[in-house]
């Protein structure tokens, strides 16, 4: 019987070795180890054995069962792996076909520039303020030291609706409103972005509607060198660490002293080229120390408080920074233009 068992083992192992199909392997398992399998059949004859022989044969039988089971399991794993491998091979795809497109839009270039400037000043502790686009003559002009007869406020330059109401020509009225709100009680820092309007015929460099960002800092002991320092930080962050700034005296009714800020031309690094008209410098923004009349009208005592203000045009900055050569592009909204600035 012992030989019989060994023979079964031998035969089974050979079959397992040869088989290459999971189903056939299953059949082998049934054929040897199943209820009607040959090993089971042999073990049925155990009853005829003597009590002395039984444990010996029993042990052999167990060894044989284990050997066959183990061989089948091993083979099973091999065949399963092979089958999986084959299945995966069949599932192969052309990875070079394009992916399913995701629809994405994006911000307008001006918004991008405005938010960049907002975030830069927010980082320096400025709040962001907004105000109405239809302004009173008082806030647009008078509160900014531009009395009724001032030549700088020609009717021809502004879109008036009535004698007292007009489309704001700058975002400075938001500064005047903010001062009145704080009412001379404490210092503050703010910037005010927004749409403004002027009587200009639309062409490559003029637009009857455009945007502005102005800033105002009022506190005790604000110095002109602070203005220079803050503008320097702004210019370097906005246009690159290697840009230099230059202040030139200028004139605005609401600041005194007034300055114009230039940055060194990026194209020629200040040596002079066609972009900077040979000067090496590019005009970026206007600024100055808040005029005492403006402080006073805003409720601030100019003997105690001083401040600086600055104002810039996001269109101009976008044009310089991204090479846009026609201001009308910002308002035509050609999708091909809009898309150029959607990437991070």
């Amino acid at each position: 019987m012992q030989e019989e068992l060994k023979a079964i083992q031998q035969e089974a192992l050979v079959k397992v070795e040869e088989v290459n199909d999971l189903k056939e392997l299953q059949a082998i398992k049934v054929a040897y180890l199943g209820k009607k399998g040959s090993l089971t059949q042999v073990l049925r004859g155990m009853g005829k054995l003597t009590p002395e022989e039984r444990p010996v044969i029993g042990e052999v039988a167990n060894q044989v069962r284990e050997a066959i089971t183990s061989a089948i399991d091993t083979k099973n794993t091999i065949l399963e792996n092979a089958a999986l491998e084959e299945k995966l091979q069949k599932e192969a795809i052309d990875v070079t076909l394009p992916g399913r497109p995701v629809k994405v839009g994006g911000p307008h270039l001006l918004t991008k520039v405005i938010e960049e400037i907002e975030d830069l000043f927010i980082g320096m502790g400025y709040e962001v303020r907004e105000g109405p686009e239809v302004e009173t003559d008082y806030f647009n002009f008078e509160a900014l030291n531009l009395p009724k007869d001032h030549p700088a406020r020609d009717m021809q330059d502004s879109f008036y609706i009535t004698n007292e109401l007009l489309l704001r020509t700058h975002t400075s009225p938001v500064q005047a409103r903010t001062m009145q709100e704080y009412n001379g009680e404490k210092g503050f820092k703010m910037i005010c972005p927004g749409r403004v309007y002027r009587r200009d015929t639309d062409d490559a460099t003029h637009s009857h509607q455009f945007t502005q960002i102005e800033g105002l800092y009022v506190d005790k002991d604000v110095k002109m060198s602070d203005l220079k320092g803050v503008l320097n930080v702004f210019a370097k962050k906005m246009f690159g660490e290697d840009r230099k700034i230059r202040l030139r005296p200028s004139f605005f009714p609401f600041t005194e002293p007034s300055v114009e800020m230039d940055i060194s031309c990026k194209v020629c690094d200040g040596h002079g080229c066609s972009v900077c008209k040979g000067t090496g410098w590019i005009e970026i923004l206007g600024a100055g120390m808040v005029h005492p009349n403006v402080l006073e009208m805003g409720g601030y005592d100019p003997k105690v408080y001083s401040g600086f203000a600055f104002g810039m045009g996001p269109e101009r900055i976008a044009m310089l920074k991204y090479g846009v050569n026609d201001i009308r592009q910002f308002y035509l909204n050609d999708q091909r233009f809009l898309k150029q600035f959607h990437q991070a």
Partner: peptide
């Protein structure tokens, strides 16, 4: 000369700033 003005940063009380 505006070129000769130093670069300084405001020394007033710091403010939180930010968007509403």
């Amino acid at each position: 000369g505006y070129d000769n003005l130093p670069f300084t940063l405001p020394t007033g009380a710091s403010t939180a700033g930010g968007l509403t």
